[in-house]
Amino acid sequence: MKILLNGETLAFEGRTVADLIAQTAPEKPFAVAVNTEFVAKTTYGYRELQEGDAVDIVRPVVGG
């Protein structure tokens, strides 16, 4: 399936956010949102992705 990852089209072969994390191996720490909705780390293995979902994997910014 194809999803949008941080605004870029990605061919994704998995099903869940956990699969996506395994495929992309983002540098820690990070947070995940699917279609602008925050996804808790404890639900990565249960949160299934669908064709066309917009996923953002972001790193926190320190400072103000």
Rank of each mutant, 00 (worst) to 15 (best):
K2E: 09
K2L: 08
K2M: 08
I3F: 01
L4P: 00
L4G: 08
L5A: 11
L5E: 11
G7F: 13
G7M: 11
E8V: 09
E8M: 02
E8W: 03
T9G: 13
T9Y: 12
L10Y: 11
A11T: 01
A11L: 00
A11W: 03
F12S: 04
E13V: 08
G14M: 02
G14K: 00
G14I: 02
R15T: 06
T16C: 03
V17L: 07
V17S: 04
A18M: 02
D19P: 02
D19R: 03
L20K: 00
I21S: 06
I21W: 10
A22N: 06
A22H: 08
Q23S: 06
Q23L: 08
T24G: 07
P26H: 10
P26E: 06
E27L: 15
K28W: 13
P29D: 13
P29H: 09
F30M: 12
F30D: 12
F30Y: 14
A31E: 03
A31K: 04
V32L: 06
V32T: 11
V32F: 06
A33Y: 03
V34N: 07
V34T: 11
V34M: 05
N35Y: 12
T36W: 15
T36P: 01
E37P: 01
F38I: 15
F38V: 15
V39W: 03
V39P: 00
A40D: 12
K41Q: 15
K41I: 12
T42I: 13
T42P: 01
T42Q: 13
T43Y: 06
T43L: 07
T43K: 09
Y44I: 04
Y44R: 01
Y44T: 04
G45H: 05
G45K: 01
Y46Q: 14
R47H: 10
R47G: 03
E48K: 07
L49E: 01
L49T: 03
Q50D: 05
Q50I: 02
Q50S: 12
E51A: 08
E51G: 05
G52A: 14
G52Y: 05
D53R: 06
D53E: 05
A54F: 08
A54Q: 15
A54G: 10
A54K: 15
V55A: 05
V55M: 00
V58T: 14
R59E: 14
P60Y: 04
P60V: 09
P60H: 10
P60A: 13
V61I: 15
V61M: 15
V61F: 15
V62Y: 10
G63L: 10
G64N: 10
